[in-house]
Write a protein that binds this DNA or RNA. Structure first.
Length: 1043
RNA sequence: GGGCCGGUAGCUCAGUUGGUUAGAGCGCACCCCUGAUAAGGGUGAGGUCGCAAGUUCAAAUCUUGCUCGGCCCA
């Protein structure tokens, strides 16, 4: 031995240089934030994604269809989780050998972008209405493009692999053409109709507003009590008796919008609310000489009597009301209760509109009633004109009492609510259920239309319904009601202050107003175009499944009504499709089912600019849309060439061709709901020639749980409407990311966590490992402590790989030992690998990444680091390179290395590559091109498992027994321990067990530990009987060095 | 206000059809090693399973109510 130790003080030589320590350049410290971009660049340079496609060319496909994020703003933690999970799915499926391409997409149309552009205009003091629509749309397009670029870079930095150079955009011309062509499919199959819906409307800007364009401010408005005479009450016999006896009984409603009274069409009660009729004779507060004012009988909710009486000044003994708890009716001497009952008894009851009497009297010169049936300028050809009220028949029709239990309360008012389907959502929905339709009495500027019997445009008293004078207690509405003897109270002062929506732009009050909209019916069997019957005004039972007002009847299919029973409705198709789809987690099925079961018809139209137009021609005479395949094809072709602008800028006569005259048609300028756009992504991406890698239908859609109402549903409905089935085989949903305390993140709370910051500090692999660790099926958290934990897990894993790299340095094929020739310990570990391998595969197929990483980490930690590697350290460091045991160990380690680098590759995409390149440097290669490791199922050996399970248990007993001695400083290293253990309880020899426990010696006896007398080998540090003096060599080491 | 979902150690998660003393990893404390060293090994302390009733011989598990949080509606 020539290389004697240098330290002169030591008597014994230092054998350190003769020990085969792990050798590697792989750094312990990751420095991911710096390293990752370079790795990304290399992948891009070698065309990794294309290489992967090429290598999986003939493999089974797995199509994850990307749900498009909205192209607006930087990505947030939710995007990061979503895209990472998608990447985990794609990469893990690819690892399993499948061809799993990924085409990312963006949602580009819609209000938020439109808004941003408008905002820019406002800053430049430019009026949007003066900008040509094509210019406006071009700016929206440019804006979306800008954010697509930003987000694309952010997603790439996350390590998400995909076709980033050719993503799909909903604003691409081909996409817009497909969207319009899908829309026309709905039109052609009769699954489109024109109906109405109350929307928030600004009479000042004469436009519909979105929720985000509305702000709420306190206003004072006139609050009135109005009496409706009850004409029938078939389910309340006593009440009916009173009516039959000639009593004039009035139902009282209370409202803060007096201007809606002239369009009242019904009254709503709460079925469980208790009502009373009070009778008295002293009401003379308001002018007018109707009989009932002198001798009144009012129907009202019992609980609200007090407030009512106060408003009317009916109560002469106010002090009696001091007790808030007791709101029982206290009858003044001159006020009596003549009827009590539940709201449900009012079912089927009828009342008379307070203006009916006035209007049923022919007016002197018809001035007020207008001439002819002149359509309003709002929607001239619309067959949705509604009631023609010039002969006042609208007002003389009976007003039914409807069950409004879902929204009628006794919080304020009278417990009876007046219903105007034109001007309220509750009103609209309830009336629709009973076949009562809106009448469109108020025009876009907030003034009653010309032919309306009550305050038409021509009336000098008529004003905008948002005008304070118009609704004032002494304004025309109140005055006329007073004249009719129906106004019981009217008040406007500070006490009537309440919150009311205003336009953000003009600050003017807005109203709910029914406007014509396009709908997809949920409950109409497709292909059959049975016109919906004329709604009955009087209809005590809800109309089951009635879609809405006037269905548009197109030319096709009206004859085969007989087949209607065989056809399924869109709702039925969707429910069936849900049953045919796999949901991960399973609870998603329940959620989307209940939503589809309960959802109303799909409103497709928006009165907006930035979107795909509803490219239809409306027949001016009939109001029906033109349904001609040739015309439709010309439209689609034009869209392919010029996008949606083709509709706005086109010569429409060209679309119509020779067969039709543009003068006979109106052009629809509404655009489509952006959810229809995204509902079509499966068509223009999966079925398109642009991405040959894609195919319909998708294996998986993967989005946040909010998309049960969003994309999952819009895609489902779109696909069921056009193809009769879902566009996906499986749907995976994830929860939302909360802050460290489980609270939702928001900018205002200042608890948001920026994914970019995590990437720049810790690295994308840490963020990815976090995403893979949490239970994404639920809401989950992120915060410093959690990220620290993730980083620790990462470091442990990284170090295990580093150890393997060191142990495997200079490993050569010639050294390899076949698993069957390996010692039991190696075979046991390979058995464990086989078990873990199967578990990991199962987790991947269940998209269970949390269990996947936990299985992987604990295998690396418990089985390898703390057990296998620890035991075999002596072998690796000190046995001769040619020793079969050492060769077997390194062979096993090589198998583990190949398996584990592949296992972590989908999650730790950068680290896996770094590890791989560290051992097998090759500029053109990548770990991500590899397939799932070839783990031999035959390695699984249950007998071995039982035996070694037992050994490990005893091993734990031994280490436990050593601990007290170590604590008492009797021994230091476990190598100094001499252990006694009943050998008959050991499935292996004591000699072997000594090695497994890393102790000095093991002899028969009851479990006990003492310090050994042996001396320490100067090279391998084992304490052995053959070593005469500390620092001498043991036999084995002697052989290795000198043999 | 309504529909749906969730609350198990400091953190991330297991916990089968109710069934011994509720588990794991990380972190933490302590100890060892200094030949995986800004590493490695060992031991240990942490939980009235969100709260309260109920069903049962027996409840983290089933039922009801409440509470906190989330998503979607209104």
């Amino acid at each position: 031995m020539t290389d004697t130790p240098k330290d002169s003080g030591a008597e014994k030589p230092d054998y350190k240089d003769t020990v085969f320590l792990p050798k590697t350049n792989f750094p312990m410290k990751a420095g991911l934030a710096n390293k990752e971009p370079a790795i990304l660049e290399r992948w891009e340079n070698i065309g990794l994604y294309q290489k992967l496609r090429e290598s999986r060319k003939y493999a089974e496909k797995f199509i994850l269809h990307d749900g498009p994020p909205y192209a607006n703003g930087n990505i947030h933690i939710g995007h990061a989780l979503n895209k990472t999970l998608k990447d985990l799915v794609v990469r893990s499926q690819s690892l399993l050998g499948k061809d799993a391409p990924y085409v990312p997409g963006w949602d580009c149309h819609g209000l938020p972008i439109e808004w941003k552009i408008e905002e820019q205009y406002r800053k430049k003091k430019r009026n949007k209405d003066e900008v040509p629509p094509s210019e406006f749309r071009a700016e929206c397009r440019e804006y979306a493009d800008k954010w697509v670029d930003v987000q694309r870079e952010e997603f790439k930095r996350l390590g998400v692999m995909g076709e980033w150079d050719t993503p799909y955009l909903t604003m691409d011309y081909h996409a817009e053409a497909t969207i319009v062509s899908e829309l026309l499919k709905f039109a052609e199959s009769g699954q489109l109709y024109r109906g109405a819906k109350p929307v928030m409307w600004s009479p000042v800007e004469k436009t519909a507003l979105a929720e985000a364009e509305v702000e709420y401010e306190d206003i004072t408005s006139t609050q009135i009590d109005v009496a409706f005479e009850i004409t029938a009450a078939p389910n309340a016999p006593k009440l009916q008796e009173l009516i039959d006896a000639g009593e004039k009984i009035h139902a009282v409603i209370w409202t803060t919008t007096p201007w809606t009274i002239p369009v009242n069409q019904a009254l709503a009660y709460g079925a469980d609310i208790e009502y009373v009729i009070i009778s008295g004779t002293d009401l003379n507060r308001w002018s007018g000489d109707s009989e009932h004012l002198k001798n009144y009988r009012y129907l009202i909710a019992k609980y609200l009597l007090k407030d009512f009486k106060l408003r009317l000044g009916l109560d002469n003994e106010r002090e009696e009301w001091s007790n808030e708890e007791n709101r029982e009716v206290r009858i003044s001497p001159n006020i009596k209760t003549i009827w009590e009952g539940k709201g449900s008894e009012l079912a089927g009851a009828m009342a008379k509109h307070p203006m009916a009497d006035v209007l049923s009297i022919p007016l002197p010169d018809g001035e007020r009633l207008g001439e002819g049936n002149k359509p309003s300028d709002e929607h001239p050809t619309l067959s949705l004109k509604g009631e023609d009220s010039k002969d006042a028949s609208f007002f003389t029709k009976p007003r039914p009492f409807l069950d409004g239990s879902t929204f009628v309360t006794t919080e304020a008012g009278t417990g009876l609510v007046h219903m105007s389907p034109d001007h309220g959502e509750d009103d609209f929905d309830l009336c629709k259920a009973y076949g009562i339709n809106p009448v469109f009495a108020v025009d876009g500027d907030g003034v009653y239309r010309e032919d309306w019997a009550w305050l038409p445009r021509g009336d000098e008293r008529a004003g905008s319904v948002i005008n304070n004078k118009f609704t004032a207690p002494d304004g025309p509405i109140c005055n006329d009601l007073r004249d009719a003897g129906a106004l019981l109270s009217a008040k406007r002062d500070e006490s009537t202050k309440h919150s009311y929506p205003h336009s953000w732009r003009s600050k003017a009050k807005i109203i709910y107003r029914c406007t014509p909209q396009w709908f997809v019916p949920m409950d109409k069997a497709s292909q059959t175009l049975e016109p919906i019957e004329e709604p009955k005004t009087v209809c005590p039972e809800p109309v089951e499944g009635q879609s809405a007002t006037h269905a548009s009847t197109s030319s096709a299919g009206t004859d085969d009504v007989q087949n209607a029973a065989d056809e399924l409705t869109l709702r039925q198709k969707a429910i069936k499709a849900i049953a045919d789809t796999r949901f991960v987690p399973e609870k998603g099925r329940n959620r989307i089912s209940s939503m589809v079961e309960g959802r109303p018809d799909w409103v497709l139209s928006r009165q907006r600019a930035w979107g795909v137009p509803i490219a239809l021609f409306l027949d001016r005479k009939t109001g029906d849309y033109l349904n001609d395949k040739n015309v439709n094809n010309r439209i689609i072709e034009a869209f392919k060439k010029g996008g949606a602008d083709a509709w706005f800028n086109a010569d429409h006569q060209e679309f119509l061709g020779d067969a039709y005259n543009l003068d006979d048609y109106d052009i629809v300028t509404d655009i489509l709901d952006v959810w229809f756009d995204s509902g079509c992504t499966h068509v223009f991406t999966l079925e398109s020639d642009i991405w040959p890698s894609q195919s319909w239908k998708a294996d998986l859609y993967l989005e946040g749980s909010d998309q049960h109402r969003g994309w999952f549903q819009s895609s489902l409905l779109e696909s069921c409407g056009t193809r009769g089935e879902a566009p996906y085989k499986a749907v995976l949903t994830h929860g939302f990311t909360m802050d460290k305390n489980g609270k939702k993140m928001s900018k205002s709370l200042g608890n948001t966590i920026d994914p970019k910051k995590i990437i720049n500090v810790n690295g994308a692999d840490i963020l990815r490992l976090w995403a893979a660790s949490v239970d994404y099926t639920e809401d989950h958290r992120i915060g410093d402590e959690i990220l620290k934990g993730v980083t620790d897990t990462y470091r442990k894993l990284r170090n295990t790989f580093r150890y393997m790299l060191g142990g495997l340095s200079d490993f050569e094929e010639s050294e390899r030992v076949a698993p069957s020739d390996m010692p039991e310990l190696e075979r046991y570990i390979l058995h464990r690998l086989a078990i873990v391998d199967a578990q990991l595969k199962e987790h991947i197929n269940n998209f269970a990444f949390g269990p996947y990483m936990r299985t992987l980490s604990s295998f690396a930690q418990d089985d390898l680091s703390a057990f296998f590697f620890d035991i075999r350290k002596d072998c690796l460091y000190c046995d001769a390179p040619s020793d079969p045991k050492r060769r077997a160990y390194r062979s096993a380690m090589d198998i583990l290395f190949h398996a584990l680098t592949r296992y972590i590759a989908p999650v730790l995409v950068f680290t896996a590559e770094e590890i791989w390149q560290s051992r097998f440097p090759n500029e053109n290669d990548s770990i991500h091109l590899k397939v799932w490791p070839d783990v031999d199922a035959a390695w699984q050996d249950d007998a071995l498992n039982d035996k070694w399970g037992q050994i490990r248990e005893v091993r734990i007993q031994v280490t436990e027994a050593i601990e007290p001695l170590r604590r008492d400083k009797i021994i230091r290293s476990s190598l100094e321990a001499e252990v006694r253990y009943p050998l008959k309880d050991l499935p292996i020899s004591g000699e072997e067990f000594t090695e497994l426990c890393i102790v000095a010696d093991l002899t028969d006896g009851e479990l006990s530990v003492t310090k050994t007398d042996h001396h320490k080998c100067g090279r391998c540090w084992r304490l052995l009987p053959e070593v005469n003096e500390d620092g001498d060599l043991c036999g084995r080491c002697e052989d290795v060095i000198h043999g």
